[in-house]
């Protein structure tokens, strides 16, 4: 603990049946969408990819991922949601969450991680670009209830792992 206890620690923890409500509470506060049960079962079965972020024991943010099968046996990761409660932004918590997922991709030899973002959400687009995500596609009329209805697909590809010669 820092001087006067002011340096709060940030830690990550997994999502299980017992604490999935924390993720629901975060999503209710963060996104104008009520996610269905499949979202939560995908998140739990993605294992280590889905994390809750704790700011000195308070749950303040999350990254929720889904593992998708590509052709063959390859797997890619889809980031369903990434968010941090407003008062706790700017403390590096989102970065920590995203880095966690990216590191895990590298460790597990996963070639691709991607997500959807609304075309006017510049803050988000810039944020992901810092992590070497690139716009790889645009989908028209992706959203049904918000304007603009279009979204970009942001993808980060990892070079195939170096094999020993």
């Amino acid at each position: 603990m820092g001087v006067g206890g002011r340096e709060a620690s940030i830690s990550l923890d997994g999502v299980r049946d017992k604490n999935v409500m924390q993720l629901k509470k975060l999503n209710t506060a963060l996104f104008p969408i009520r996610y269905n049960d499949k979202y939560y079962s995908d998140a739990i079965s993605s294992g280590d990819f889905t994390r809750l972020a704790y700011y000195s024991d308070i749950c303040v943010g999350s990254i929720a991922c889904r593992l998708e099968k590509k052709e063959g046996r390859a797997i890619r990761v889809y980031i369903m949601t990434l968010g941090v409660l407003a008062p706790y932004r700017g403390l590096g918590i989102g970065t920590k969450l995203l880095n966690h997922a990216l590191d895990l991709c590298v460790k597990q030899g996963i070639s691709e991680i991607y997500l959807h973002v609304q075309t006017n959400n510049e803050d988000a687009i810039n944020f992901y670009k810092k992590f070497r995500f690139e716009i790889t596609d645009t989908i028209k009329n992706y959203y049904t209830n918000i304007v603009p209805p279009d979204c970009y697909v942001l993808t980060r590809s990892f070079s195939p792992p170096q094999t020993k010669k």
């Binding site: 009520r34 609304q118 959400n121």
Partner: peptide, 17 residues
């Protein structure tokens, strides 16, 4: 309190709790 978060997925909006 969810003003400018960084939305990812696109699952249709159905209900606000």
């Amino acid at each position: 309190n969810g003003g400018s978060s960084l939305p990812g997925g696109g699952i249709s909006l159905d209900y606000v709790a």
